[in-house]
Simulated assay, not measured.
Amino acid sequence: MALNLRENEKLKLKAKIHWLSYTFQILFGVLFTLYGLTTLASKDSHLLLSLIIGLLPLLYKMLVNYCKEYSLTNQRLYIEDGILAKTKREIPVQKINDFEINQGIIQRIFGAGNVHVLTGNDKPTILRNIKNPDDFKNNMSEITGVISQKAINPV
């Protein structure tokens, strides 16, 4: 995954995916491992099979997150997603109007969140499971020059 920078374009910020995005897959793996351990005493132990089945979703999610890229340059927000079939989206910095952060209670506890990038009449672009979303949003605001309306006029 290489970001092809244009002339006079500089990479300013790159988002990191939070480990919390692996929660479901880790729980799934633990449950299947426990199942394998309970069958260990029986004659037909399925420990190896349950370990493989338990780890496959985690490995897949790791691959998905590895192939996901959120980058901000001085000219555009670049979003790339997909393992085999790629989806690439570029949003010019001039079109970005505002940012929002959505965090569930678990995300707040562990410092993760979703950053919504608002551009005119388009539906928001969501950057999911970002590590330290407040810092990321503040850095994006500083780089793009966008000051959140919610920060200016608190309700």
Results as ranks from 00 to 15, higher is better:
residue 59 L to D: 04
residue 11 L to M: 00
residue 33 T to R: 11
residue 149 Q to R: 14
residue 101 I to P: 02
residue 122 D to G: 08
residue 27 L to M: 11
residue 48 L to A: 10
residue 95 K to H: 08
residue 114 N to H: 10
residue 13 L to R: 04
residue 102 N to A: 10
residue 22 Y to W: 02
residue 152 I to T: 01
residue 123 K to Y: 13
residue 57 P to E: 07
residue 138 N to F: 09
residue 21 S to N: 02
residue 52 I to G: 05
residue 14 K to M: 14
residue 13 L to N: 07
residue 84 L to K: 10
residue 21 S to E: 01
residue 56 L to D: 06
residue 141 S to A: 10
residue 100 E to T: 06
residue 55 L to E: 11
residue 71 S to F: 05
residue 108 R to K: 15
residue 22 Y to H: 08
residue 60 Y to N: 10
residue 107 Q to S: 15
residue 136 F to Q: 12
residue 142 E to T: 09
residue 22 Y to G: 00
residue 95 K to F: 05
residue 114 N to D: 12
residue 37 L to I: 13
residue 71 S to A: 13
residue 33 T to D: 08
residue 147 I to T: 06
residue 49 L to K: 08
residue 153 N to Q: 04
residue 132 N to I: 09
residue 125 T to R: 03
residue 78 Y to D: 12
residue 30 V to F: 13
residue 67 C to Y: 06
residue 61 K to D: 14
residue 101 I to K: 03
residue 129 N to Y: 13
residue 20 L to M: 03
residue 35 Y to E: 03
residue 88 K to D: 09
residue 151 A to D: 11
residue 30 V to C: 13
residue 105 I to E: 01
residue 144 T to H: 03
residue 124 P to L: 00
residue 29 G to M: 12
residue 111 G to H: 12
residue 150 K to D: 11
residue 126 I to D: 00
residue 84 L to E: 04
residue 9 E to D: 08
residue 36 G to I: 15
residue 119 T to N: 14
residue 72 L to S: 01
residue 56 L to E: 06
residue 69 E to F: 05
residue 46 H to V: 11
residue 70 Y to L: 01
residue 32 F to N: 03
residue 18 H to Q: 03
residue 63 L to T: 13
residue 6 R to A: 13
residue 13 L to W: 08
residue 79 I to Y: 05
residue 121 N to W: 03
residue 141 S to G: 09
residue 56 L to P: 05
residue 145 G to K: 01
residue 90 E to Y: 04
residue 126 I to S: 06
residue 11 L to Q: 11
residue 63 L to Q: 07
residue 24 F to L: 11
residue 123 K to T: 15
residue 152 I to K: 06
residue 155 V to S: 09
residue 90 E to I: 02
residue 77 L to Y: 11
residue 94 Q to N: 06
residue 108 R to S: 15
residue 134 D to I: 14
residue 120 G to S: 08
residue 134 D to A: 14
residue 149 Q to N: 11
residue 126 I to W: 00
residue 111 G to I: 08
residue 27 L to C: 10
residue 135 D to Y: 13
residue 40 L to G: 07
residue 61 K to T: 15
residue 66 Y to T: 14
residue 109 I to Y: 15
residue 80 E to W: 05
residue 77 L to T: 02
residue 3 L to Q: 09
residue 15 A to L: 05
residue 22 Y to E: 00
residue 103 Q to S: 09
residue 131 K to I: 04
residue 84 L to C: 09
residue 52 I to H: 09
residue 117 V to K: 02
residue 8 N to E: 15
residue 117 V to P: 11
residue 76 R to L: 06
residue 50 S to I: 05
residue 62 M to P: 00
residue 83 I to F: 02
residue 10 K to W: 06
residue 63 L to N: 10
residue 24 F to M: 10
residue 145 G to W: 00
residue 154 P to F: 03
residue 93 V to C: 07
residue 30 V to K: 02
residue 137 K to F: 04
residue 14 K to H: 14
residue 5 L to Q: 12
residue 57 P to Q: 05
residue 44 D to H: 10
residue 136 F to E: 13
